[in-house]
Amino acid sequence: MSELAVDVVTISPVVVPASVDAPDARVFVEMVRIANAVCLHDAGHDYLREEPEEMLGMWQDQADWTQLGFAALRGETVLGVVKMLISNQPDASTIEFDLMVDPPHRGQGLDKPLLAEVEREARERGISTIQTWTLHRPDAVGDRLEPPTGWGSIPDDAEARLQQANGFTLEQVERNSVFDLTGDPSPVERMLHDAEATAGEDYRSVTWTSPTPPEYVEGFAYALSRMSTDTPQGGLVVDEQRWDAARVERRDARLKAQGLTVSVAAVLHVPTGRVAAYNELAIADDPAGATQQFGTLVVKEHRGHRLGTIVKCANLLRWRTIAPQSPRVSTFNAEENRHMLDINEAIGFVPASYAGAWKKVLEA
C-alpha cells in the first residue's frame, strides 16, 4: 500500500460514552472491534477478546488510572486507534499504550499521527517514558529478536520493525499460555494436595468471588500493592502502586461494571493475617468464552513454600463450578519468571502466543 495521505485522515479523541448503545458510542465500539481484530491477526487466536461493555466499564472508572484514546478516521471509517493508560499517582513516570491499526489498513503510515498523540500527551504531563506491547504467533519463522534479559525472543517481523523504526527498544518478552479446562482434573488435584502438605500450618487457603469479603480487604490490598514491585520487569519502567481498602473496593466495583465474574484463590499467612499469595480468574458475559487469568503473585518473603501452585490449582478446580462452559484459561508471564512458568507447565499450560514489551525514552 502507499503511504498515508495525511490530509484525508482526521485524528480525534475517543469519547467515553454512557453506554455502548449511546449515540456517541460508535468510535468507542470500533476501538474494541479493532483491538480484537489486531489480537486475532497478530496472535492467531481469539483468547484475548474483549466485549465493548467490558472495556467501557474500565474506561468509565478514572479514579486510579486515566484512560484516553485517539482515533484515526477517514470520513466515518475508523482506521486505527491508540489507547493510553496513565497512573493517577503524582509520581507517575510512564504512559502505557496500545496502538492498533485495523489490519486491512496497515502499511499506510497511520502509526505516525497516532504515536504523535502519545508523545504529545507524555510531554504535556512531564512524562519521559512511553511503553507498549506487540503480539506474535508461536510458530513464526525467520530472524528473532532477544531482549536484554536474555530470556525469550520474538520474530523480527513487520510489527517489531515498526517499533524499532519509531525509536523503541525491546525490553522483555512475555509468554501467553493457555490451559485446557475440559481435561481430566485429577493431576491438578494431586498437585494441590502435595503443595498444601508442603506449605504447612503457617498458611491457610481461602477463596472468594468478587467483591472481596471485608475480612480480606486489607490483606488483599497489601498483596495487590506488591504486584508492581515483586514481579520481573526486565528493562521496563513500572511505577510502584499504592493500595488501600478503598482502592480494592473501587476495583471490585469496576470489575462488576465491566460485567466480569472474578474468582480469587488466596493463601493467608496465619501469623500475620496477610495475603501471601493470590490468583485471579475472570470471565465476561459469554459463558463459553475464554477465561482470563488476571494477577498471580507470591509475595517475595513467602516464596519457597509452593504457594503459587496452591493458588493456581485451587482456582482452576473452583473455576469448573463457576464457569463450566469456558474451554480454556489464558495468561501472560515474563519469560524470565521461570518459577511461575515451571508451575504453569507442570499444571498443563502450553504456549499460545508471545508478546514483546517495548520502551521509548523521549528526548527533552
Rank of each mutant, 00 (worst) to 15 (best):
A246L: 03
L56V: 12
A277S: 15
G57Q: 03
D143E: 07
Q172F: 04
P113K: 01
V329A: 02
A158C: 04
E189V: 06
V298M: 04
V361W: 12
Q131V: 05
Q292T: 10
R318D: 03
Y278G: 05
C39A: 11
T66L: 13
C39Y: 10
M55Y: 10
S205A: 11
T212N: 03
R204K: 11
E280D: 11
R247H: 09
L317K: 03
G235I: 09
F28P: 13
S205D: 05
T149C: 01
E30Q: 14
R226S: 07
T321R: 00
M191G: 14
L268T: 03
P185E: 03
I347V: 15
H45S: 10
M1N: 08
V217G: 02
A35I: 01
L4D: 06
V8T: 11
V20N: 10
Q163L: 12
Q67L: 13
L192H: 08
G80I: 08
G69A: 07
R106S: 07
G234N: 06
E335P: 02
T10A: 14
W243N: 03
E174D: 10
L268H: 03
T77V: 15
A290Q: 09
A276G: 15
D156G: 08
Q89K: 11
T231Y: 06
P214M: 05
R204I: 06
L255T: 07
A265D: 00
A277F: 02
P90L: 09
N166M: 08
E76C: 07
V118D: 10
G126D: 03
A346G: 02
Q108T: 11
G126E: 08
